[in-house]
């Protein structure tokens, strides 16, 4: 699998590390809603298909990325710098 790093270009998967699901949004820090926190920390939808994920080009430019990947085909649909992309809390 190759990931097109927006800085480095096409690089081998081995240079990247997975940083987690980029679709979850953190509850308000003052929230005491146990279910909302449980969902945020532990529960993942684990979809068969398109998925937004955080990756880091750790063995390269070290930029944090948001990658859209198809979990069935491993096709990479989009790659963007995490700081420019809507992901996680910004989604």
């Amino acid at each position: 699998m190759l990931i097109d790093c927006p800085h480095c270009g096409s690089r081998d998967l081995a240079e990247f590390s997975y940083q987690g699901d980029a679709t979850r949004a953190r509850p308000d820090l003052a929230s005491t809603d146990t279910k909302a926190w449980l969902d945020y920390v532990y529960n993942r939808p684990n979809p068969a298909g398109r998925h937004r994920e955080f990756w880091q080009h750790a063995g390269g430019c070290r930029a944090h990325l948001v990658v859209e990947r198809d979990t069935l085909t491993h096709e990479i649909l989009t790659v963007a710098f995490a700081r420019d992309a809507a992901g996680g809390d910004a989604a």
């Binding site: 480095c8 081995a14 240079e15 750790a58 063995g59 390269g60 430019c61």
Partner: peptide, 8 residues
């Protein structure tokens, strides 16, 4: 900037 296995 690249890596050979775990070595940057």
């Amino acid at each position: 900037a690249t890596a050979h296995h775990d070595l940057f």
